[in-house]
Amino acid sequence: MVIVVPIKQVPETSNVQMDSVTGVMIRSGSKAILNPLDLYAIESALRYKEACDARVIAVTMGPQSAMKVLKEAIAMGCDDAVHISDRAFAGADTWSTSYTLAKAIAGMGKVDLIITGERATDGDTGQVGPEIASWLNLPLVTYVSQLIEMRSDSMMVKRMTEEGYQKLEVTLPALITVLKEVATVRLSTLKGKMRAMDMIIPTRTVKDLDVEPSYLGLKGSPTKVVKIEQARVKRDALIIEAMEADKVPDAVISLFDFLEDKQLLEKGESR
Protein backbone atom coordinates (compact mmCIF):
# COMPACT_ATOMS: atom_id res chain seq x y z
CA MET A 1 0.00 0.00 0.00
CA VAL A 2 0.99 3.65 -0.43
CA ILE A 3 0.78 6.26 2.32
CA VAL A 4 1.30 9.95 1.62
CA VAL A 5 2.26 12.36 4.37
CA PRO A 6 1.95 16.07 3.53
CA ILE A 7 4.37 17.99 5.74
CA LYS A 8 5.07 21.67 6.08
CA GLN A 9 8.07 23.81 6.81
CA VAL A 10 7.31 26.52 9.36
CA PRO A 11 9.30 29.34 10.97
CA GLU A 12 11.10 28.29 14.14
CA THR A 13 9.99 30.93 16.61
CA SER A 14 7.01 33.18 16.76
CA ASN A 15 9.33 35.94 15.66
CA VAL A 16 8.18 36.22 12.07
CA GLN A 17 7.96 39.14 9.69
CA MET A 18 4.95 39.85 7.54
CA ASP A 19 4.78 41.88 4.37
CA SER A 20 2.30 44.58 5.34
CA VAL A 21 1.28 45.14 1.72
CA THR A 22 0.51 41.60 0.58
CA GLY A 23 -0.01 40.13 4.02
CA VAL A 24 2.22 37.24 3.08
CA MET A 25 4.89 35.96 5.42
CA ILE A 26 8.48 36.91 4.77
CA ARG A 27 10.29 33.67 5.29
CA SER A 28 13.85 34.81 4.95
CA GLY A 29 15.60 35.59 8.20
CA SER A 30 13.92 33.30 10.70
CA LYS A 31 15.05 29.71 10.96
CA ALA A 32 12.72 27.20 9.38
CA ILE A 33 11.85 23.80 10.83
CA LEU A 34 9.53 20.90 10.15
CA ASN A 35 6.10 21.66 11.65
CA PRO A 36 6.44 19.89 15.03
CA LEU A 37 2.94 18.38 14.75
CA ASP A 38 3.79 16.78 11.40
CA LEU A 39 6.30 14.52 13.13
CA TYR A 40 3.32 12.60 14.48
CA ALA A 41 1.89 12.19 11.00
CA ILE A 42 5.22 10.78 9.79
CA GLU A 43 5.46 8.51 12.83
CA SER A 44 1.91 7.20 12.25
CA ALA A 45 2.74 6.41 8.63
CA LEU A 46 5.91 4.58 9.64
CA ARG A 47 3.97 2.49 12.16
CA TYR A 48 1.50 1.68 9.45
CA LYS A 49 4.37 0.68 7.20
CA GLU A 50 5.64 -1.71 9.86
CA ALA A 51 2.18 -3.21 10.30
CA CYS A 52 1.10 -3.47 6.66
CA ASP A 53 4.17 -3.15 4.52
CA ALA A 54 3.52 0.24 2.96
CA ARG A 55 5.53 2.68 0.93
CA VAL A 56 5.56 6.08 2.64
CA ILE A 57 5.90 9.25 0.57
CA ALA A 58 6.42 12.62 2.21
CA VAL A 59 5.29 15.63 0.21
CA THR A 60 5.67 19.33 0.83
CA MET A 61 4.70 22.44 -1.02
CA GLY A 62 7.06 25.28 -0.33
CA PRO A 63 10.16 27.16 -1.44
CA GLN A 64 13.46 25.49 -2.34
CA SER A 65 14.50 25.53 1.34
CA ALA A 66 11.56 23.25 2.20
CA MET A 67 13.59 20.40 0.72
CA LYS A 68 15.17 20.23 4.16
CA VAL A 69 12.03 18.94 5.86
CA LEU A 70 11.71 16.21 3.21
CA LYS A 71 15.26 15.07 3.98
CA GLU A 72 14.26 14.91 7.63
CA ALA A 73 11.29 12.73 6.73
CA ILE A 74 13.56 10.41 4.73
CA ALA A 75 16.01 10.24 7.64
CA MET A 76 13.16 9.12 9.88
CA GLY A 77 12.32 6.29 7.49
CA CYS A 78 10.02 7.57 4.74
CA ASP A 79 10.72 5.85 1.42
CA ASP A 80 10.26 8.72 -0.98
CA ALA A 81 9.72 12.43 -1.07
CA VAL A 82 8.18 14.90 -3.45
CA HIS A 83 8.81 18.62 -3.45
CA ILE A 84 6.19 20.89 -4.99
CA SER A 85 7.49 24.30 -5.79
CA ASP A 86 6.74 27.05 -8.25
CA ARG A 87 6.41 30.80 -8.07
CA ALA A 88 2.82 30.31 -9.15
CA PHE A 89 2.01 28.56 -5.86
CA ALA A 90 3.30 31.38 -3.67
CA GLY A 91 0.92 33.10 -1.28
CA ALA A 92 -1.71 30.35 -1.46
CA ASP A 93 -4.39 30.19 1.25
CA THR A 94 -5.57 26.81 2.59
CA TRP A 95 -8.07 26.32 -0.23
CA SER A 96 -5.46 26.81 -2.92
CA THR A 97 -2.71 24.95 -0.99
CA SER A 98 -4.97 21.94 -0.53
CA TYR A 99 -5.94 22.05 -4.21
CA THR A 100 -2.32 21.94 -5.31
CA LEU A 101 -1.41 19.19 -2.85
CA ALA A 102 -4.49 17.15 -3.80
CA LYS A 103 -3.56 17.41 -7.48
CA ALA A 104 0.00 16.33 -6.75
CA ILE A 105 -1.25 13.36 -4.71
CA ALA A 106 -3.78 12.42 -7.40
CA GLY A 107 -0.87 12.26 -9.82
CA MET A 108 0.92 9.64 -7.71
CA GLY A 109 -1.33 6.78 -8.75
CA LYS A 110 -3.10 4.59 -6.23
CA VAL A 111 -2.78 6.09 -2.75
CA ASP A 112 -4.35 4.21 0.17
CA LEU A 113 -3.93 6.60 3.03
CA ILE A 114 -3.05 10.24 3.58
CA ILE A 115 -1.95 11.39 7.03
CA THR A 116 -1.56 15.05 7.94
CA GLY A 117 -0.69 16.86 11.14
CA GLU A 118 -3.45 18.40 13.22
CA ARG A 119 -2.35 21.88 12.20
CA ALA A 120 0.70 23.86 11.25
CA THR A 121 2.14 26.12 13.93
CA ASP A 122 2.34 29.13 11.58
CA GLY A 123 -0.99 29.25 9.76
CA ASP A 124 -2.61 27.45 12.67
CA THR A 125 -5.79 26.61 10.76
CA GLY A 126 -5.86 22.83 10.61
CA GLN A 127 -7.78 23.18 7.35
CA VAL A 128 -5.37 21.83 4.77
CA GLY A 129 -5.86 18.16 5.76
CA PRO A 130 -9.69 18.18 5.63
CA GLU A 131 -9.58 20.19 2.42
CA ILE A 132 -7.28 17.70 0.69
CA ALA A 133 -9.75 14.97 1.67
CA SER A 134 -12.58 16.97 0.15
CA TRP A 135 -10.79 17.57 -3.16
CA LEU A 136 -10.14 13.84 -3.43
CA ASN A 137 -13.59 12.84 -2.14
CA LEU A 138 -12.04 10.75 0.58
CA PRO A 139 -13.59 9.87 3.92
CA LEU A 140 -12.04 12.11 6.59
CA VAL A 141 -11.24 11.36 10.19
CA THR A 142 -9.81 14.28 12.17
CA TYR A 143 -8.20 14.48 15.61
CA VAL A 144 -7.04 10.86 15.65
CA SER A 145 -5.39 10.11 18.99
CA GLN A 146 -4.74 6.39 18.58
CA LEU A 147 -4.30 3.88 15.77
CA ILE A 148 -6.07 0.87 17.20
CA GLU A 149 -5.94 -1.49 14.25
CA MET A 150 -4.11 -1.03 10.98
CA ARG A 151 -5.20 -3.13 8.02
CA SER A 152 -4.47 -2.66 4.36
CA ASP A 153 -8.11 -1.96 3.46
CA SER A 154 -9.46 -0.30 6.61
CA MET A 155 -8.45 0.95 10.00
CA MET A 156 -9.86 1.38 13.46
CA VAL A 157 -8.90 4.56 15.30
CA LYS A 158 -9.69 6.63 18.35
CA ARG A 159 -10.79 10.20 17.69
CA MET A 160 -10.85 12.95 20.31
CA THR A 161 -13.89 15.18 20.67
CA GLU A 162 -14.94 17.82 23.18
CA GLU A 163 -17.06 15.28 25.03
CA GLY A 164 -14.57 12.42 25.14
CA TYR A 165 -13.56 10.17 22.33
CA GLN A 166 -14.98 7.93 19.64
CA LYS A 167 -13.81 4.58 18.42
CA LEU A 168 -14.43 4.39 14.72
CA GLU A 169 -13.72 2.43 11.63
CA VAL A 170 -12.92 3.82 8.21
CA THR A 171 -12.30 2.07 4.93
CA LEU A 172 -9.29 2.97 2.84
CA PRO A 173 -8.50 5.05 0.88
CA ALA A 174 -9.00 7.75 3.49
CA LEU A 175 -7.40 10.83 5.01
CA ILE A 176 -6.74 11.17 8.71
CA THR A 177 -5.32 14.05 10.73
CA VAL A 178 -3.42 13.00 13.83
CA LEU A 179 -2.83 14.51 17.27
CA LYS A 180 0.37 14.50 19.24
CA GLU A 181 -1.04 11.77 21.44
CA VAL A 182 -1.07 9.26 18.60
CA ALA A 183 2.49 8.04 19.07
CA THR A 184 5.93 8.81 20.43
CA VAL A 185 8.12 10.03 17.61
CA ARG A 186 11.24 8.04 16.75
CA LEU A 187 14.63 9.58 16.17
CA SER A 188 16.19 9.39 12.76
CA THR A 189 18.80 6.70 12.32
CA LEU A 190 22.31 7.09 10.99
CA LYS A 191 21.37 4.90 8.04
CA GLY A 192 18.35 7.08 7.39
CA LYS A 193 20.45 10.21 7.52
CA MET A 194 22.92 8.78 5.02
CA ARG A 195 20.07 7.85 2.71
CA ALA A 196 18.60 11.32 3.02
CA MET A 197 21.91 12.89 2.23
CA ASP A 198 22.33 10.91 -0.99
CA MET A 199 18.74 11.04 -2.15
CA ILE A 200 17.84 13.28 -5.05
CA ILE A 201 14.35 14.59 -4.42
CA PRO A 202 12.37 15.67 -7.48
CA THR A 203 10.74 19.09 -7.61
CA ARG A 204 7.39 19.30 -9.37
CA THR A 205 6.31 22.60 -10.85
CA VAL A 206 3.06 23.81 -12.43
CA LYS A 207 4.07 22.07 -15.69
CA ASP A 208 4.18 18.68 -13.96
CA LEU A 209 0.77 18.91 -12.37
CA ASP A 210 -2.61 18.80 -14.02
CA VAL A 211 -3.83 22.01 -12.41
CA GLU A 212 -6.21 24.85 -13.25
CA PRO A 213 -3.92 27.91 -13.24
CA SER A 214 -6.62 30.23 -11.90
CA TYR A 215 -6.77 28.18 -8.66
CA LEU A 216 -3.13 28.72 -7.78
CA GLY A 217 -1.21 30.90 -5.37
CA LEU A 218 -2.19 34.30 -4.03
CA LYS A 219 -4.36 35.04 -7.10
CA GLY A 220 -6.28 31.78 -6.88
CA SER A 221 -7.01 32.09 -3.16
CA PRO A 222 -10.59 32.92 -2.19
CA THR A 223 -9.45 34.63 1.03
CA LYS A 224 -7.37 37.80 0.91
CA VAL A 225 -5.44 39.31 3.77
CA VAL A 226 -6.38 42.99 3.87
CA LYS A 227 -4.68 44.14 7.05
CA ILE A 228 -1.97 43.02 9.46
CA GLU A 229 -1.63 44.44 12.95
CA GLN A 230 0.57 43.69 15.90
CA ALA A 231 -1.45 41.82 18.48
CA ARG A 232 -1.84 43.21 21.97
CA VAL A 233 1.00 41.54 23.78
CA LYS A 234 1.50 43.52 26.94
CA ARG A 235 -1.25 43.89 29.47
CA ASP A 236 -1.36 46.42 32.29
CA ALA A 237 0.21 43.99 34.68
CA LEU A 238 -0.72 44.69 38.27
CA ILE A 239 2.22 43.06 40.01
CA ILE A 240 1.78 42.05 43.62
CA GLU A 241 4.89 41.28 45.62
CA ALA A 242 4.30 38.34 48.00
CA MET A 243 7.61 36.59 48.45
CA GLU A 244 7.37 36.83 52.23
CA ALA A 245 4.69 34.63 53.73
CA ASP A 246 3.10 37.50 55.68
CA LYS A 247 2.32 39.34 52.45
CA VAL A 248 0.45 36.41 50.97
CA PRO A 249 -2.99 36.93 52.61
CA ASP A 250 -3.22 40.51 51.30
CA ALA A 251 -2.07 39.41 47.87
CA VAL A 252 -4.79 36.77 47.77
CA ILE A 253 -7.40 39.32 48.86
CA SER A 254 -6.31 41.54 45.96
CA LEU A 255 -6.64 38.57 43.66
CA PHE A 256 -10.20 37.91 44.82
CA ASP A 257 -11.07 41.62 44.48
CA PHE A 258 -9.78 41.47 40.93
CA LEU A 259 -11.74 38.32 40.12
CA GLU A 260 -14.88 39.79 41.64
CA ASP A 261 -14.45 43.08 39.84
CA LYS A 262 -14.19 41.29 36.48
CA GLN A 263 -17.08 38.98 37.37
CA LEU A 264 -14.88 35.94 37.11
CA LEU A 265 -16.10 34.31 40.28
CA GLU A 266 -19.73 33.85 39.27
CA LYS A 267 -20.59 30.22 39.54
CA GLY A 268 -23.33 28.42 37.69
CA GLU A 269 -22.35 28.93 34.10
CA SER A 270 -18.96 27.44 34.71
CA ARG A 271 -18.63 25.72 31.38
Partner: peptide, 23 residues
Protein backbone atom coordinates in the same frame (compact mmCIF):
# COMPACT_ATOMS: atom_id res chain seq x y z
CA UNK B 1 4.32 35.43 32.04
CA UNK B 2 4.31 38.41 34.42
CA UNK B 3 4.47 40.90 31.54
CA UNK B 4 1.52 39.36 29.80
CA UNK B 5 -0.62 39.13 32.96
CA UNK B 6 -3.37 41.48 34.05
CA UNK B 7 -2.59 40.51 37.61
CA UNK B 8 0.55 38.74 38.74
CA UNK B 9 1.41 37.54 42.21
CA UNK B 10 5.15 37.23 42.70
CA UNK B 11 5.48 34.59 45.38
CA UNK B 12 5.76 30.93 46.22
CA UNK B 13 2.96 29.11 44.48
CA UNK B 14 2.48 26.61 47.30
CA UNK B 15 1.94 29.32 49.91
CA UNK B 16 -0.22 31.43 47.60
CA UNK B 17 -2.40 28.55 46.41
CA UNK B 18 -2.78 27.34 49.99
CA UNK B 19 -4.07 30.77 50.91
CA UNK B 20 -6.41 30.82 47.92
CA UNK B 21 -7.92 27.54 49.04
CA UNK B 22 -8.37 28.93 52.55
CA UNK B 23 -10.06 32.01 51.16
Amino acid sequence: IIQISDLAIVGDLFTVCGEIEKE
